[in-house]
Design a protein around this nucleic acid. Structure first.
Length: 528
RNA sequence: GGCCCCAUCGUCUAGUCAGGCCUAGGACACCGGAUUUUCAGUCCGAUAACGGGGGUUCAAAUCCCCCUGGGGUCACCA
């Protein structure tokens, strides 16, 4: 059997699109399933300038997700170069071949003229086809006009005068037919000698011996052109597999960076945006660091697990069977086949991603969790380099108390009460009013509790538990009458980790300090 | 508008190719209950879908046709 070779060909845009990542992932998984090769090829025919800086975030996304490319930038390979900007010679050579075979021609029609013709066709609700006025120009005339500086373009000649349909046997969609008599002759080369996408893509796929072109459905419509080009160049056509594009949550519309403002209002996206808005400023990223949920980097920065994102992405438009949801990348590679790809567009569901994340986070051992939280705490300024040793031990205890509330790494920043000094602790205004100021007995009870706690010297959560229970028993009140006020006093918040875990983390002395500070604040807010 | 693709719970999907095992299965979300000092979690439970119409057949979510709806794409972008 022929060696399986797949590729992903991003253009250096400065970020990695989550939908593109899913396409790349399918390519990688498919290749690995067949012990094949996955290639990264850079589509930089258009913008030769800041390729390096615009490429880096893309490579980083691949590294982060754990999708290594066997051939491509940095790694090289036998079929390089892997930057299209370095392959122009090859495109020109093949273009020349087509011209000689009279399968391509110089076209001096101006862009304005072409546009006018296209618009006219549209206006008359007619299919647009380019004119072939310049097809019969003899070489002397062509040379003369080129020398004169006339702008031209090279078009591939579509075989329109045939009844034969172009048939694509798509691995996902089955047989798809196109009628060549309705297709315009595509431009394959500009006069500056640079190729257009459809042309460069075909030549590279052929020379890199790509066996399967797995790409998003939006490319289905330029597949006939490419198929024709493969034939004309006498290259063997690869197997095409057009996978559904990734849609915006709850819609069938392609997920797009241009519609971000609209997504902010999307209820499915709401939680995700809110989390980012909360977390990024704490990490010192102004304007959210230019990050948004369409970008892979967004999930990396927020602290998603790569296994979770990998799992979630694999499940968009693909399933293993009627049950299995949680899958390791090994399981996915082992079971991935093209025939189980769904045909209709699949909405990206942030809730589902989060649920995958919880599952995967549940498998992470405690010490590893703590280790991963440290960079977040450090960046936010809650932990300092010098105190790493102390910090790890303490952070591990906090993380243990936080338990399942830690879903993404950055969630640790929601528990700042364990990292700020007692006089810096912020109180949630609403909770403070409701639990401390408003209930008449809250402050006296807190005062008394603080008094008794001073001499108690509790250490463990159990001891705090016992202490508080004894206290309420003695006062003949329910625990509910004190616990809420106590929580707000000690943590500043209405909700959080287990009350006694929180107290044990802080220790008797700090709990007392915080309660006393609470009482001061309460009395001053009373008198206002 | 031309060309092309798609159509099962709110969402992601299984089932469609090889019609019966489907009074349509799973997961997420939502809702309810239990547990708990709060939040979360966990455990139980409930609601929820074959777009419509015609065929074919003993039998159709599954095959055929039409309609409707949704979407992609129509560059000297990729």
């Amino acid at each position: 059997m022929k060696a399986i070779r797949t590729r992903f060909a991003p253009s250096p845009t400065g970020y990695m699109h989550i939908g593109g990542m899913r396409t790349a992932l399918f390519n990688w998984v498919f290749a690995k399933h067949h012990q094949g090769t996955f290639i990264l090829r850079i589509d930089d025919t258009d913008q030769a300038r800041n390729v390096e800086s615009a490429l880096e975030p893309i490579l980083q996304a691949f590294r982060w997700l754990g999708i290594p490319w066997d051939e491509g930038p940095e790694t090289g390979g036998d079929f390089g170069p892997y930057f299209q900007s370095e392959r122009t010679e090859s495109y020109q050579k093949h273009c020349q071949t087509l011209i000689e075979k009279r399968l391509a021609f110089y076209d001096f029609t101006t862009p304005d003229q072409s546009r006018a013709e296209r618009e006219a066709a549209e206006k008359e609700k007619r299919n647009y086809i380019n004119n072939r006025n310049d097809f019969d120009l003899d070489s002397a005339t062509i040379q003369e006009r080129i020398d004169r500086g006339d702008n031209y373009v090279i078009r591939f000649l579509v075989p329109r005068d045939t009844d034969e349909k172009i048939v694509i046997d798509d691995a996902v969609r089955g047989r798809v037919e196109f009628d060549p008599s309705t297709m315009p002759d595509p431009v394959i080369m500009r006069s500056n000698g640079l190729p257009l996408y459809n042309f460069a893509s075909v030549i590279d796929d052929a020379s890199m011996q790509i066996s399967h072109v797995i790409r998003a459905e939006e490319h289905l419509s330029n597949t006939p052109v490419q198929a024709l080009l493969f034939d004309a160049l006498e290259f063997e056509r690869p197997t095409f597999a057009h996978i559904p594009y990734v849609a915006a949550p709850g819609t069938k519309e392609k997920l797009s960076k241009r519609k971000l403002e609209q997504y902010r209002k999307n209820p499915k996206f709401k939680k995700l945006f809110e989390h980012g808005d909360f977390i990024f400023p704490l990490l010192g990223l102004e304007n959210n660091g230019g990050l948004d949920p369409v970008m892979v980097e967004y999930y990396e920065k927020i602290g998603y697990l790569t296994d979770a994102v990998f799992n979630a992405l694999a499940r968009i438009g693909w399933s293993l069977d009627d049950q299995t949801e949680i899958m390791s990348r090994e399981t996915i590679v082992e079971n991935f086949t093209l025939d189980r790809i769904v045909k209709s567009p699949a909405g990206f569901d942030p809730d589902k991603l989060l649920s995958f994340q919880s599952d995967w986070m549940g498998k992470v051992p405690l010490n590893e969790k703590a280790l991963n939280c440290i960079p977040y705490l450090a960046t936010a300024g809650y932990v300092h380099a010098g105190e790493k040793e102390f910090a790890h031990d303490y952070i591990e205890k906090v993380v243990a108390a936080v338990g399942d509330r830690l879903v993404v790494w950055s969630d640790i920043l929601r528990f700042d009460e364990f990292f700020v000094t007692d006089d810096q602790l912020k109180f949630e205004e609403k909770a403070f009013q409701k639990r401390v100021v408003k209930p008449e007995d809250a402050c006296p009870l807190l005062a008394e509790l603080a008094e008794e706690l001073t001499g108690a010297n509790c250490q463990t959560a159990e001891e705090f538990d016992q202490f508080v229970h004894q206290f309420v028993e003695k006062k003949e009140i329910g625990i509910g009458q004190i616990i809420h006020a106590l929580r707000v006093a000690v943590t500043g918040k209405a909700a959080g980790v287990g009350m006694f875990d929180a107290m044990a983390l802080l220790g008797t002395e700090r709990c007392v300090k915080r309660i006393r500070r609470t009482l001061e604040l309460a009395s001053s807010s009373d008198s206002q």
